[in-house]
Design a protein around this nucleic acid. Structure first.
Lengths: 204, 204
DNA sequence: ACCTGAACACCGTTCAAGT
DNA sequence: ACCTGAACACCGTTCAAGT
């Protein structure tokens, strides 16, 4: 797999999920907006009923649109995810291999660490079939694979590093970041750089 | 802080919590054992009521002994924690600084990653006052600090690495490990080594 | 001193009844 | 086609009543 295989397909696919009828669409959007606020404040494990309540909608209406919690999470993230993914494609074309990989990982960490508990949901959904969040996860992994391979072909990243290991480290950092709302991108960058450069002192 | 400051104080303190009366002690032990089994199978967020049920005890009895979930977790881990902590003190005396630090981090990761959801509980309890699990966490951080300082004084670990950063990385790896029961110590060691040595390729 | 069952408020999920 | 309130089973926590 090479960097050129990064595509935009299916990324905006979720738009097709929005209902056509006006009242339904209004409810749908209200739920997504309420979910974003609730997730940001209390994490992705917050009460579904309360999201429905604060959206001014019956809980069963929420379930009609989003049968599983994962779908609600995936849709709440979708817009930002599209931006991140687009950025990944750009990076592969404009930046040096190592810089591109680093920037991509940072964006990925920020995305996965957006809400408390999100890293768990992402990895839970990773393998599961028919999971909207799982599709999102797969996309991130494919881009990670492409940018990793590019950096390895350029001899800038150790050849023995596997994508899933890199993704695990990124997910771990995202988990740490997502745990306190105080932690900013700076901290994520610091932890990522530690892992990239290594903790062991070099003889100079 | 130096390596010699590692002590065993308060580690076996939890023993004083065991009730003196025979029937109470029997219930107490049954709850702890049931909790270990339940945590191992379903993670630390499993139902308290079910633990009580499988221990053959009323749920309120469980709450009498363990008013918070954290206390139950802390006691369930206590024996093993004592062993890990003892190992930390040994390592500081018998092993080379870098080896000692690595072994310690591996033991810490294994301990924090024992149960699903445990990394979350540990970091939640980290700062909280009066938390038994928080005390455990503080102990681990003190030992980490001591072994890190030792390795830095020997010039084997970069001088700019802070303890909390190292602990964050270890906790992140523990979180990844705790997420699938299939992952063994080998994987933890691999991820730890990646972070120690770094991902960037070296010119030879 | 210790245990218990019941009570309370909450949540996720489903479903029959409505427009 | 879409929405709703109610119902069901579950959980964490507390408390009055027991020995």
């Amino acid at each position: 797999m090479t960097a050129t295989e990064i595509t935009d397909t299916e990324i905006t696919d979720w738009e097709s999920r929005r209902p056509k009828r006006a009242d339904a669409r209004r409810n749908y959007d209200a739920v997504v907006e309420a979910a974003r606020a609730a997730f940001a404040r209390d994490g992705v494990d917050t009460s579904i009923d309360e999201i429905a309540r604060s959206a001014g909608v019956g809980n069963a209406t929420l379930y009609r649109h989003f049968p599983t919690r994962d779908e609600l999470i995936a849709v709440a993230l979708a817009e930002n995810m599209a931006a991140v993914h687009k950025r990944g494609a750009e990076l592969a074309e404009t930046e040096e291999p190592l810089v591109a990989l680093r920037e991509w990982l940072l964006a990925t960490i920020a995305q996965i660490g957006t809400y408390g508990g999100l890293p768990d949901s992402v990895l839970d959904a990773a393998g599961r079939e028919g999971s909207l969040l799982g599709v999102t996860c797969t996309h991130m992994q494919e881009t990670t694979q492409a940018l990793l391979a590019r950096a390895q072909e350029a001899g800038e990243i150790r050849a023995d590093v596997r994508m899933d290991e890199l993704f695990d480290l990124a997910a771990g950092i995202a988990w740490v970041i997502s745990r306190d709302s105080a932690a900013d991108t700076t901290r994520a960058g610091r932890l990522l750089d530690l892992a990239l450069v290594g903790l062991i002192a070099r003889q100079t």
